[in-house]
Write a protein that binds this DNA or RNA. Sequence first.
RNA 1: GCUCGGGUGGUGGAAUAGGUAGACACGCAGGACUUAAAAUCCUGUGGGCAGAAAUGCCCGUACGGGUUCGAUUCCCGUCCCGAGUACCA
Length: 920
Amino acid sequence: MEYNFLEIERHWQDYWSKNQTFKVNTDNSKPKFYVLDMFPYPSGAGLHVGHPLGYIASDIFSRYKRLKGFNVLHPMGYDAFGLPAEQYAIQTGQHPAQTTEKNIDRYRKQLDRIGFSYDWSREVRTSDPKYYKWTQWAFLEMFGHWYNCSAQKAEKIETLVKIFEREGNSKVDAAHSDVELFSAEGWNSFTDKQKSTILMCYRIAYLGETSVNWCPALGTVLANDEVKEGFSLRGGHPVEQRKMRQWQLRVSAYAQRLLSDLDNVEWTDSLKEMQRNWIGRSQGAEMIFKVSNGIQKYNLEIFTTRADTVFGATFMVMAPESEWVELLTTEDCREAVAEYITATKRKTERERMAETKKATGVFCGSYATNPFTNEQIPVWIADYVLAGYGTGAIMAVPAHDSRDYLFAKQFNLPIIPLIEGCDISVESFDAKEGIMCNSGFLNGLTVKEAIPAAIEEVEKRGLGKRKVNFRLRDAIFSRQRYWGEPFPIFYKDEEAFPVDFKDLPLELPEVDKYLPTESGEPPLARAANWSYNGYPLEKSTMPGFAGSSAYYLRYMDPHNDTSLVSKESNSYWRDVDLYIGGTEHATGHLIYSRFWNKFLYDLGYVCEEEPFKKLINQGMIQGRSNFVYRIKGTNKFVSLGLKDGYDTTELHVDVNIVHNDKLNTEEFKKWMPDYADAEFILENGEYICGWAVEKMSKSMFNVVNPDIICDNYGADTLRMYEMFLGPLEQSKPWDTNGIDGVHRFLKRFWRLFFSSREFGVSNESASAAELKVLHRLIKKVQEDIENFSFNTSVSAFMIAINELMELNSNKRAILEPMLILLSPFAPHITEELWSRLGNSSTISSATFPEYVESYTIEDSIEYPVSFNGKMRFKLTLPSTLAPAEIEKAVREDENTHRYLSGGSIKKVIVVPKKIINIVF
RNA sequence: GCUCGGGUGGUGGAAUAGGUAGACACGCAGGACUUAAAAUCCUGUGGGCAGAAAUGCCCGUACGGGUUCGAUUCCCGUCCCGAGUACCA
């Protein structure tokens, strides 16, 4: 009986779907387990073999947990709003909803063929109005709340109004944008519009002027994590800085909690580290420097982490965008400053980055007083100081900061070393170590002692205070695009008002074109009647991360019409126990989701403060390209081994017509018309292709479609092979060479159940040897799955099968538990054999076999005996011996005496079950 | 530059509370079955030296040191590769 994987897989996929085998409900009699994949953006290109890697791993884990008695929530959905569908719509005029729908259908078909155990009744799509109603709802909640820093939580905006009415805003410890101080009387005398403008500075979702990443090619703004090295992540278009009024989320208010709570989740260290860097906490002090432009005196505030170096501050620098520039530029410097500022503005973000080795700047004419030395020091303007961080101004300590050093050298400013014996002749001494000198009261202290001592002195003299700064900025939430969630916001007299909750979802309107208008307004401006009760609605839409920030909550209760997730569902499923996805979301989705969840937690809508308990990053699967070598000026192709004898051009060839690096020359002739009459110079009758690891992409002809693998080998082989390829978290190239090994394994496994030619297993009881094989495997597979070491468990299966074949084992007592062990990896073949064995229920409701140690204990052990670490001979001893008895046996062994040849034993080291080493 | 990973046969990769390095698989070579092919099965396969053979010895986990009876594993230094980040004061 052949292993007919196509028939078997089709049959069981139908069966699972018809019987809703993987549908779950809350069930208080069972412990819950929530396994989540990062849902995909359904692109037009469909899935390639790299995409399912993480899904396969999570599916194996889900199936394993079911066998272990857990009630497993394992859902899937689509991140359906996004740029490519909109770009395609602009080109073709087709509604993005249509292309998205089509792509989703294709994705679904591809996913279904791999045999995932998703509960599809819980599917979500971010572009579905029933779904984005709750994205809009969350936004309105953020609009209606402020962040109370002393309580460390979000509170209703009404509580803030009460405080303002009672005492003004001077004592409120709130996360806010720049705002003037006012008293209670002041507040009460404001007009409604003034009040609303002030409240906007406190809302968690707020409208504010900010410097944004503007991408002219895409015609929209982008968040920091959507920009990489000055180019847009999607499309790779240049990005420039622009001041614009945009909706923003006050993520920065949560910076400390986002940082601290990383300690409470089981993520990889590298991912946590990435988030820590992105949040970028730095502890230091804010200090006031008295400055004078000759006419008027001001207090210029700066931020520093090195308060200990004040004695070496020989000049000040402020950012070109700083509002201080206007105040501190003196008349005689005005022209030079203006010129410098225009020059800076013209530079793109990229140019500014590229020029990190060259310092540019201009003196503004004013002088500051160093509060510790009382020296007069010049105030400069330079673009190496950023407006958006700290106070936008710094004290420059050239001896101990490389950027200040570069600047001082360029403009001949004094450099004063502050650490004993440091060499600053060619570069600054940035390390925080050494003994202080030239520093007045700090002299003789180590840097570590001097930093707090200096801050203490600063506070004592009233020059400033301790301060913690974060690099994490508020998230820019507006996109000038069509294919996204509309903001439930309308404007009355230029003032923003929320759309009433009962009117949600505010559905995306129809437009004639998906482009911005001629006047540069977002596409929604094209919609007729884009208004609410006669008032104009917000025309930008929300960014991609809006819909993906709370989708894991929606899966818990996907059809709920009255809330995002019910209290009952949320308190049962709580949080994601295992989240699998790519590391590319480290500073985007994974920050926003945590922020979003914490916000909902503050409001009492969810019961866990962190959404993803454990997170695994699957590695990227790269492509493995194949090459052919065409002799220049001919249509002749020479095999890899002979190509050095010719002048050739290396050309990519479709990997799907190459098997084990051997080209199918007939297929090759059919592949492209140009090659129809190609000739080949073969080696040993075969054409061998060259290869290289590259990104998987159409242009390299190295895309492998999982459907083809399923056609040729079956889904079970694909699943096991993807796991066998290497450690889950490691990036690795896809190489179809080698898949035969896994396929062969499944065929052998299948054959174990066919003792003659007919299906049949023996009911005899298992032998000790068979039980040993089985129980070693149970232990190994269980440990490996728990440790996400799926590649080694595939190997363990192969070893076990080889051993069982040697034993001619076909006993039900062994094969039935083997089926259960294998079922998470290869669900179709195991389900088929399971039912042939006469089981009425599906294998997913079976119980994972219990490991019994006594079956695996060996009678005797072969010990390698080494002398001073060098292996000499092997000694077989009963496994029951205690270390002392082993030592006695080896001392008495004749081989020992032979190798000692008269020398005396100093020590005998016995590592139980491993090695005996004699030291002499 | 900084931070975090990682360097093991022809290939993918096993093995680290320090204990026979190269499991398992691919590929390759040889063999069995077959008219032939496919499929399947068996044997060998890190390098070197010696031997008819069984086998024995030496060298080998990027490189150079160190700790140890013993290091792929721990420590110090160097080189290379990958990821993240980019003037964050």
